[in-house]
Computed example of a mutant assay.
Amino acid sequence: MDKQIRHRPNIKRQRGAVSIEYALLLMLGILPLLLVTFTGVMVFAAQQSLTLAASEGARAALRYGDVPARRNSACQASARSMQWLLNFSGEAPNCPAAAAAPIVVSDAYPCASDGTTRCMQVSVSYDYDRHPFIPGTGRLLGWTLGERMRSSAIVQLDNGN
């Protein structure tokens, strides 16, 4: 039995090796995986918010009124739906004009499907490269996103107005 003890490695020198291995695994394996997962979830939530904002803006454009009032109403409804993105980026839409990012509402134009009806398009966007949710991930996800995240919706206006 004494012979077996002599051939064992020195146990005192191995103390704490598992803790160091666990710390390295945590830092180099699990935390980057969680970072990528969280960023993906936030990008998905932002895209869903943009889609909702565009559709809510298009619905608001259906309210009766002249074209400038419809544009303003569509811009305000879109801004309410994507308010958390506007707050995070520090951008503010210009709803009376509604002609520049992050919210663009077109003038009424003849619809492509039927020239006798008029349509309006509501486009919303978010610049993830300038305002990433986690610092440093703008460059990391630049190859997948590449440009502003966008969503748009088109609504056919009533013929009475």
Score class of each variant (00 low, 15 high):
residue 85 L to V: 02
residue 97 A to Q: 14
residue 136 G to K: 14
residue 33 L to S: 09
residue 151 S to Q: 09
residue 18 V to G: 11
residue 105 V to N: 01
residue 111 C to N: 10
residue 119 C to N: 05
residue 97 A to C: 03
residue 64 Y to I: 13
residue 144 T to E: 01
residue 143 W to Q: 12
residue 160 G to D: 03
residue 71 R to P: 06
residue 124 V to S: 01
residue 55 S to F: 03
residue 16 G to H: 11
residue 57 G to N: 04
residue 136 G to F: 13
residue 144 T to V: 15
residue 148 R to G: 01
residue 64 Y to E: 13
residue 39 T to R: 09
residue 124 V to M: 08
residue 56 E to T: 07
residue 154 I to F: 02
residue 41 V to E: 00
residue 46 A to M: 05
residue 7 H to N: 12
residue 47 Q to H: 08
residue 19 S to V: 14
residue 49 S to Y: 01
residue 56 E to Q: 13
residue 128 Y to E: 00
residue 81 S to D: 00
residue 146 G to Q: 10
residue 101 A to F: 03
residue 89 S to A: 09
residue 120 M to H: 04
residue 138 G to A: 13
residue 7 H to D: 06
residue 160 G to S: 05
residue 92 A to M: 14
residue 46 A to Y: 04
residue 154 I to T: 15
residue 155 V to H: 08
residue 30 I to R: 05
residue 111 C to S: 13
residue 58 A to Y: 05
residue 28 L to E: 00
residue 130 R to S: 10
residue 146 G to A: 03
residue 91 E to G: 01
residue 10 N to Q: 14
residue 70 R to C: 02
residue 94 N to Y: 02
residue 144 T to N: 03
residue 60 A to D: 04
residue 37 T to N: 03
residue 130 R to D: 04
residue 65 G to F: 06
residue 28 L to D: 00
residue 130 R to W: 01
residue 103 I to W: 01
residue 90 G to H: 11
residue 28 L to Y: 08
residue 153 A to D: 09
residue 140 L to M: 15
residue 87 N to F: 06
residue 25 L to Y: 07
residue 119 C to R: 09
residue 3 K to E: 12
residue 138 G to Y: 02
residue 41 V to A: 14
residue 2 D to P: 03
residue 160 G to T: 11
residue 114 D to A: 13
residue 147 E to S: 15
residue 12 K to T: 07
residue 9 P to D: 12
residue 24 L to M: 14
residue 34 L to S: 06
residue 152 S to V: 04
residue 5 I to T: 10
residue 154 I to Q: 13
residue 122 V to C: 08
residue 154 I to H: 04
residue 79 A to S: 13
residue 101 A to R: 14
residue 3 K to H: 09
residue 160 G to H: 12
residue 56 E to P: 00
residue 44 F to E: 00
residue 132 P to C: 10
residue 73 S to W: 07
residue 131 H to E: 00
residue 74 A to W: 05
residue 29 G to Q: 02
residue 129 D to K: 12
residue 33 L to M: 14
residue 20 I to W: 05
residue 109 Y to P: 00
residue 104 V to L: 10
